[in-house]
Design a protein around this nucleic acid. Structure first.
Length: 744
DNA sequence: TCTCCTCGCACTTTTGAAAGGA
DNA sequence: ATCCTTTCAAAAGTGCGAGGAG
C-alpha cells in the first residue's frame, strides 16, 4: 500500500494510522510526472520523494500566500439559485452539482505546486423539509457521514497551471449512498451543506502543507434533495443546465410534450381495449367499430388539411387503410398517434430552432461563465422560467422572497425556514463587476465579492488588489496574520448580532478562526480570543473525511495504471512518488484523540469569501466543520448561526501544525485540522450554554489520504479520509472496509 | 395518508472512435 | 504516413413521474 501523508506539517499529535488498508499498486511505469502544462515547472522542481518532514522554517513566501485569491466565476448563477434556495439532487449513483464550482485562482506562486480540494460540510445541524413554499428546519440532522474530499484531477499542479485556467469541480458527484465506493461525496438528503475549496501548497508531490488557503462562497450553500421540491429551482435548473434542455418549454421533453404524448397514449390504449372487447364475429360490430376506430385514429393524427382544400389525399388514404382491416387499423391507429407525436415533436423541434438558439446562447454563456446570462432578474425569485433573462443581475437583488429564514439565533424555533440568500448590493464598489450599481452598505463595503467580470472567463482574471475593497475576489487570510486579528479590519460590525433579517450572505465568509493551538479543547478555550464570543460548542461531530478522486478526469485515469505492488498516489503529475522506498512503511497507529473544541470567536469579514490561509491550521478539528458559516440566519440553531464573522487564523503559529512530520508515502492525510471549521461565526451568538449537539460528538477525524482499493478504479489514492479517532460505527457498518475498499 | 426515495423513461450533451480527405 | 475534419454511436447527465417503502 502506498499512501502519502498529505500534511506533514500538521502534526497534531499521536495519530491513528493504518486504518486504511488498500490494495497496493505499483506505480505506472510510464506515468508522466506532470501534465504537460506543468512539465516545465515540474522540471524546475526537484522531486523529493520521502523528503524529510517539512521544516517550519521553510514557509512559502508570505507575500504570495497573503495574496492568494479565489473568484467564483459563475457567482451570478449561484446567486440566482441561492436567491431561491439552492437544491442539489443526490442519487445513489452520484449526481453532479449544478451549478458547478467554477473558480479562478490568483496570487499563487507560479512555480510551486498546489493541490485543490473540495469538501462539503454541513451548514448546520438541522434537517429540512419543504413546506409552504419554503424550507423549514424540522429536526436535528442525521449523524454526520464521513467527509469525503474531492481532489481536483489536476492536482497537484503548479500555481501557473491553476492560474491560467478556470478551475472546475464539475466532476465531483454527490451521493446519498452511504456505502458508496466510487469516491463520491456522501451527503444526507434534506440537509443543508456548504462547499469549501482548499488550496494546499504542495512544495513537491510528497510535501503538502506548505500553506493552506480555504475558501467558502456562501452563495454555494445548498440543500440536498432526492427530488426537487421548489419548482423555481427546477425551472432554474432546466433553463440553465444544457442537459436539461429537453425539459424546456420548447424542448421535446417539455411538460407540454409529455402531456400530449400521455394523452395520445391513453387514447390509443383506450381504443385498443374497446376494440379488443368487441365481438370479432359480428360484422356489424366490426364495421361500426371500424368507423369509430377510424375516427379515433384520425383524431389522433395530425390535423387533416382543411376540408375546403380541393386536394385531400390524406382522407382517402385513411379510409382505405383503416376501414378494411381491423387489426391493421389498430396498428395504424397506434402508429398514427405515434407518428403524430413524432411529427408534432419534429414540428416543435423545427419551431424551436430560434428559441433553442436563444436557449443555447444562454447555456453557452453559462458554460463560459458568462455571468450576465444568469444574473438577472432577481431579486424576486422568478416565478417562471421566462423570467430568467440574460440581463445582468441587478445589484439590488436580493431579495428573496419566498423563503423565510429560520432564525438561527433562535434554536428553540422548531421550524425555522430558510429564505433564499439575500445578497446585498456589494458589487458596486468593484470595478470589475458590471453589475455593481448599488452602493455597498457600511458592512458591505468591506466585502469583497468573488464575482468576476462576465468576460474573460477562459482567461485569467486580472488580479484585484487585495487592498481594494471593491475587489470581487476573495482574499485569503495571510498566514502571518494573527489568528486573533480580524482579517478585515475595515469591517466594523457584523450582523453579528445574529439578527435573522441581516444577511451578509453575498460576501464570502472567512473561515472561522482556527485555533492555532493544540486541539485540546481546554487549551482552545483558554486561548485569548480577540473576539467576542466564546467558542462554539464542540457539539458538532467531526466526520471522517475522505479525499476522493471519484470523478477523475479520464485522462488522469489513463495515466494511472493499477499495479500489483503498492498503491501510490497516482496523481497525474506524480510519477516519482511511487519510487519512494519508504512507501511501504507501516503506519503507526495513533492514539491521538481529537475532541471537539470550541471555535475561536469569529470575526465577521463581510467581505466576500471566506478565505483562510494558513499553514495548516488545525481548526478546531474538533469543531465540526458543521458550523453554518455562510448564512447565519438560516441556521436554526442559534448557537451556531449567530455570527458571520470569521477571524483570520494563522495556523503556522501553532506548533502542532508546524512540527515536521515524517514524510512517508504510506501516510495519508491524517489531520482533521486540514479543513478549518466552517462557521466560527456562530460564536458571536453562541449562548454561554452550548446548544445540544444534534450530531454525535465525533472524536478526532484525522485526514488521511488513502488509495481507493477498488479494483475498478484506475486511480489509486483516491480518498482522503478524515478518520474518526476512535473509529466510527456507521449504522451500516464500519467506515472502512479494511480489506479492499473504503466503504462505510 | 403522507413523505421520501428509487427506478425507468425520454431527452440532451459530451466524448471518443471511425471514416474520409488533404 | 500523418494530420485534420466530419460523422456517428455510446456514454453520461438531466428532470419527470410512477411506484414502493416506511
Amino acid at each position: 500500500m502506498l499512501s502519502m501523508e498529505m500534511y506533514p506539517s500538521l502534526n497534531l499529535g499521536p495519530q491513528r494510522i493504518g486504518d486504511c488498508f488498500y490494495r497496493e499498486r505499483e506505480p505506472p511505469a510510464h506515468m508522466p510526472l506532470f501534465p504537460p502544462a506543468c512539465d516545465v515547472a515540474a522540471k524546475s522542481l526537484q522531486p523529493r520523494m520521502l523528503a524529510p518532514p517539512p521544516v517550519p522554517s521553510e514557509p512559502a513566501p508570505k507575500t504570495q500566500k497573503d495574496e492568494v485569491k479565489m473568484e467564483l466565476e459563475n457567482a451570478s448563477l449561484w446567486k440566482q439559485f441561492s436567491s431561491v434556495g439552492t437544491e442539489m439532487i443526490i442519487t445513489k449513483k452520484g449526481r453532479r452539482m449544478f451549478p458547478g464550482l467554477r473558480l479562478k485562482l490568483s496570487g499563487l506562486n507560479p512555480s510551486l505546486r498546489y493541490i485543490l480540494l473540495l469538501d462539503i460540510i454541513p451548514a448546520d445541524n438541522s434537517r429540512y423539509r419543504f413546506q409552504g413554499g419554503s424550507w423549514q428546519a424540522v429536526g436535528g440532522a442525521e449523524a454526520r457521514l464521513p467527509d469525503r474530499v474531492f481532489i481536483h484531477p489536476d492536482s497537484p499542479a503548479t500555481g501557473a497551471h491553476w492560474q491560467s485556467r478556470t478551475i472546475s469541480f464539475h466532476y465531483a458527484k454527490l451521493t446519498n449512498n452511504t456505502l458508496d465506493s466510487q469516491g463520491h461525496i456522501i451527503l444526507h438528503s434534506l440537509h443543508r451543506y456548504q462547499p469549501r475549496i482548499h488550496v494546499i501548497e504542495a512544495r513537491d508531490v510528497l510535501r503538502w502543507g506548505g500553506g493552506q488557503h480555504s475558501f467558502v462562497f456562501p452563495e454555494t450553500q445548498f440543500i440536498t434533495v432526492t427530488a426537487y421540491q421548489n419548482s423555481k429551482i427546477t425551472e432554474l435548473k432546466i433553463n440553465s443546465n444544457p442537459f436539461a434542455k429537453g425539459f424546456r418549454e420548447d424542448g421535446m421533453n417539455s411538460k407540454k410534450q409529455r402531456d400530449a404524448r400521455q394523452k395520445r397514449k391513453i387514447a390509443v390504449l383506450t381504443e385498443t381495449l374497446d376494440i379488443v372487447n368487441c365481438d370479432p364475429c359480428d360484422s356489424t360490430e366490426i364495421l361500426s367499430h371500424s368507423t369509430d376506430l377510424q375516427a379515433l385514429a384520425l383524431a389522433s393524427l395530425p390535423p387533416l388539411p382543411d376540408p375546403s382544400c380541393e386536394f385531400r389525399p390524406d382522407e382517402a388514404s385513411y379510409e382505405d387503410t383503416l376501414i378494411p382491416d381491423q387489426p391493421l387499423d389498430l396498428g395504424q391507429a397506434f402508429m398514427a398517434s405515434q407518428m403524430s407525436d413524432i411529427s408534432i415533436s419534429m414540428a416543435n423541434g423545427m419551431q424551436d430552432t430560434p428559441g433553442n438558439e436563444v436557449a443555447n446562447g444562454m447555456i453557452e454563456r453559462t458554460n463560459t461563465m458568462g455571468e450576465p446570462a444568469y444574473t438577472c432578474t432577481f431579486p424576486a425569485a422568478q416565478t417562471n422560467s421566462s423570467s430568467f433573462s440574460s440581463a445582468p443581475l441587478p445589484q439590488s437583488s436580493s431579495s428573496f422572497s419566498s423563503l423565510s429564514i429560520p432564525d438561527s439565533s433562535d434554536t428553540s424555533d422548531p421550524q425555522p425556514s430558510i429564505p433564499p440568500i439575500d445578497y446585498p448590493p456589494i458589487f458596486s464598489s468593484s470595478p470589475t463587476l458590471s453589475s455593481s450599481s448599488t452602493t455597498p452598505s457600511l458592512q458591505q463595503t468591506s466585502f469583497t465579492f468573488p464575482t468576476p467580470p462576465p468576460s474573460n472567463t477562459s482567461s485569467p482574471q486580472p488580479l484585484l488588489s487585495s487592498s481594494s475593497p471593491s475587489s470581487n475576489t476573495f482574499h485569503t487570510i495571510p498566514e502571518t496574520i494573527s489568528p486573533h486579528a480580524p482579517a478585515d479590519t475595515s469591517f466594523t460590525a457584523t450582523p453579528s448580532t445574529c439578527q435573522p433579517g441581516l444577511i451578509q450572505s453575498s460576501a464570502a465568509f472567512i473561515y472561522p478562526n482556527i485555533l492555532p493551538t493544540n486541539p485540546d479543547p481546554a487549551s482552545l478555550t483558554a486561548l485569548p480570543l480577540p473576539i467576542q464570543n466564546p467558542p462554539p460548542p464542540s457539539t458538532l461531530p467531526c466526520a471522517p473525511t475522505s479525499f476522493a478522486f471519484p470523478s477523475v478526469h479520464p485522462h488522469m485515469q489513463n495515466l494511472v495504471s493499477p499495479s500489483s505492488g503498492h498503491s501510490a498516489l497516482h496523481l497525474p503529475n506524480l510519477s516519482h512518488q511511487a519510487q519512494a522506498p519508504s512507501l511501504s512503511a507501516p503506519f503507526p497507529s495513533s492514539t491521538f484523540t481529537h475532541r471537539s473544541s470550541s471555535l475561536p470567536p469569529p470575526s465577521f469579514q463581510p467581505s466576500s469569501c471566506l478565505g483562510v490561509s494558513s499553514t495548516f491550521q488545525q481548526t478546531v478539528s474538533s469543531t465540526p466543520s458543521l458550523r453554518p458559516a455562510a448564512h447565519p440566519q438560516s441556521f436554526p440553531n442559534a448557537s451556531t448561526s449567530s455570527s458571520t464573522s470569521y477571524p483570520p487564523v494563522e495556523m503556522g503559529a501553532v506548533a502542532q501544525f508546524n512540527p515536521p512530520a515524517p514524510y512517508r508515502p504510506e501516510m495519508v492525510l491524517h489531520h482533521q485540522s486540514l479543513l478549518p471549521q466552517l462557521d466560527p461565526s456562530l460564536q458571536s451568538c453562541i449562548p454561554s450554554t452550548p446548544p445540544t449537539a444534534l450530531y454525535p460528538a465525533f472524536p478526532s477525524y484525522p485526514l488521511r489520504l488513502c488509495q481507493d482499493p477498488h479494483p475498478s478504479l484506475s486511480i489509486p489514492f483516491r480518498h482522503l479520509y478524515r478518520q474518526h479517532q476512535h473509529g466510527h460505527h456507521h449504522p451500516q457498518g464500519s467506515y472502512l472496509d479494511m480489506s479492499t475498499r473504503a466503504v462505510f
